[in-house]
Write a protein that binds this DNA or RNA. Structure first.
Lengths: 206, 206
DNA sequence: TAGATTGTTAATCGATTAACAATC
DNA sequence: TAGATTGTTAATCGATTAACAATC
């Protein structure tokens, strides 16, 4: 039952890219798209796209391509974004504020439901349409709300401690903006968004 | 001569991760670190680390590990972050402001040198310690300054047009926060930081 | 029907790992 | 010296690509 454990992560990691491109294609009015057209838009080979998608079912029609609406629907289901996930934000500096106000989450399956900071000067202030709460209340509040996703926007020095707290509170997926590798239990996922890493990946070639 | 073209990108992409971890290790006072210790901190196998590093030279000492300082120095050279790169920022909304004020760039090799927006209400205002400039001046200003790195923090609808402008102005590396795939010439690098993509990669497993 | 495109197989390609002689 | 760890080789593992019968 669980989660088709046979799908390689490298394939899973491409699905959100496909989904995003399909949503753009739909906005343009496309109702059907071939693996070749999709591949050209994403700089991915059409064979790869067909192989990836075929792992989840037979969504395509020979001679026509993939029905955009149905494929969007299916990918959302497989990715579990056919619902809205509540997210807890920790760290409400400049970046935390920007995240709290970012409109792009809601339309794509995520809602920042709570924001915490440890700085007394920030607690009680507003971030987006949230009130910043005391981090000492995090565990109880997150547990009670059953929140499974956390975003860390603190300085690096605080990030591991925050991660431990989130895991203790029941969070199972962490988006980490702090520039540090996190150590978490095996059943917890972490994704990293330190902007300097991709910059340094590119300067190698400059 | 050029840029050892034989190093696979997957190896290059891990170097900034190694560099970051080594800088943390140095802060802790370590002067030497084994591939095993480094691997444990990063959840990477020690064999992989040794293989990756050996592509650039013989930095390790048998029986002791890698001298932290020397390896940091070498990695910075290989990644070309043994200097400070000027960066141009386009789009000064909430995210653009947060980026303009982020302290983490300067210490790791990057300086946002200019910020542009197309909104007349924003032009002339302040972002970090920069004055926001009219995007119509971008090409000339960036060309004259010889800036090679751009950051796009505009809405998705504007991002491709901005990318074209940056490429025209001589930019060869783009960090794209907008939720859209960019099409650029072969000799231009793009890295993506749409936060929804990693979130959706994780919800698959929830 | 004719043309186009899928899903899938087999072949290729590339990355990771295990193991160990060399050596600090 | 003895113990530890590197750099490297060969083996394993996994991902991508090419090609095509099936079929819309």
């Amino acid at each position: 039952m669980a989660k088709k454990p046979e799908i390689p992560h490298v394939v899973v990691s491409r699905l959100p890219i496909y989904l995003r491109a399909l949503e753009h294609a739909r906005q343009e009015g496309l109702t059907c798209i071939s693996s070749q057209e999709l591949g050209e838009r994403l700089s991915i080979s059409s064979a790869q796209i067909r192989k990836d998608l075929s792992m989840f079912g037979e969504y395509g029609k020979q001679g026509r391509g993939y029905p955009v609406d149905a494929l969007i629907h299916a990918l959302r289901q497989h990715l579990h974004v056919d619902r809205v996930w509540d997210v807890v934000l920790v760290g409400v500096g400049d970046l935390g504020h920007a995240l709290a106000r970012y409109k792009g989450f809601a339309e794509r399956g995520f809602r920042i439901a709570m924001a915490f900071d440890k700085d007394p000067a920030k607690i009680g202030t507003t971030a987006g349409d949230l009130t910043v709460e005391d981090i000492r209340l995090l565990a109880r509040r997150v547990q009670e709300a059953g929140i499974k996703i956390g975003m860390i926007a603190t300085p690096a020095a605080a990030a591991q401690e925050v991660a431990n707290l989130l895991v203790f509170a029941g969070v199972r997926a962490i988006l980490n903006y702090a520039p540090i590798h996190l150590t978490v239990p095996n059943d917890v996922r972490v994704e990293y968004l330190d902007p300097v890493i991709p910059l340094q990946r590119m300067t190698y070639y400059l």
